[in-house]
Amino acid sequence: MDIQDAMSASPQRPAAPHEIPGPSPHVRSHLEQGITVTEIHGITDLGTVTEIRDHLDAVTTRHSPRLIVDLRHVEFLDCSLLGLLCRARRRTAQRSGQLTLVCVRPWHLHILEAARLGAFFQPSATVQDAVCRQRQDT
């Protein structure tokens, strides 16, 4: 765990290494062909960042996590979600895993490009496209 992770660690009990956290109003995960798909929903801002961070931390805890983050159901995002995506990407890379992003809304894609994150995430249009990309990369 690095200093940034330690500073923002939640006092809640973390999920077991292979356990998918339970759903909450803004984030839920399920398995798709052996890959964890985390769907983020609704408005994401400072009010929801802790809930989403804790969930993403739980699904990126194990070695070699394979994660797809699906933003298709996000109505609003700000820099707090961008920070969480970067954090999840870093945690996944540190654990020799893969993170693929699903993002189709033009405004969200514009925000990713404006933040110069489009090249890091290379968003897919569907979960199935993201699954195929991860399968090709392994």
Score class of each variant (00 low, 15 high):
T50P: 05
T50V: 15
E51K: 03
E51I: 09
I52G: 04
R53Q: 07
R53M: 07
D54R: 14
H55Q: 10
L56V: 06
L56P: 01
L56A: 02
L56G: 00
D57G: 08
D57Q: 12
V59A: 02
V59Y: 00
V59F: 00
T60P: 04
R62E: 11
R62C: 12
R62P: 04
R62M: 11
R62N: 13
H63C: 10
S64A: 15
P65T: 06
P65A: 08
P65M: 06
R66H: 08
L67K: 01
L67Q: 00
I68Q: 07
V69T: 06
V69H: 03
D70N: 15
D70C: 06
L71E: 02
R72G: 08
R72F: 09
V74E: 06
V74R: 09
V74W: 10
V74N: 11
F76Y: 13
F76M: 08
D78S: 11
C79V: 15
C79Y: 14
C79Q: 14
C79L: 10
L81E: 02
L81D: 06
L81Y: 05
L82D: 05
L84Y: 01
L85S: 04
C86V: 13
R87I: 03
A88P: 05
R89Q: 11
R91D: 07
T92S: 10
T92R: 05
T92I: 12
A93Y: 04
Q94F: 04
Q94C: 05
Q94V: 05
R95E: 05
S96V: 07
S96A: 13
S96Q: 12
G97T: 01
G97H: 00
G97C: 02
L99D: 00
L99F: 00
T100F: 02
T100Q: 12
L101H: 04
L101D: 05
V102E: 07
C103Q: 08
C103Y: 04
C103W: 01
R105M: 12
R105H: 15
P106S: 08
W107H: 15
H110L: 03
H110A: 06
E113S: 15
A114T: 09
A114Y: 05
A114V: 09
R116H: 14
L117P: 06
L117C: 12
A119N: 09
A119C: 09
F120V: 13
F120S: 12
F121I: 01
F121N: 01
Q122L: 13
P123G: 05
S124E: 11
S124H: 07
A125N: 15
A125D: 15
A125S: 14
A125M: 13
T126I: 14
V127E: 11
V127Y: 09
V127H: 11
Q128W: 13
Q128G: 13
Q128C: 14
D129M: 06
A130K: 01
C132G: 12
R133W: 02
R133P: 03
R135K: 12
R135L: 14
R135D: 08
Q136W: 13
D137P: 01
D137V: 14
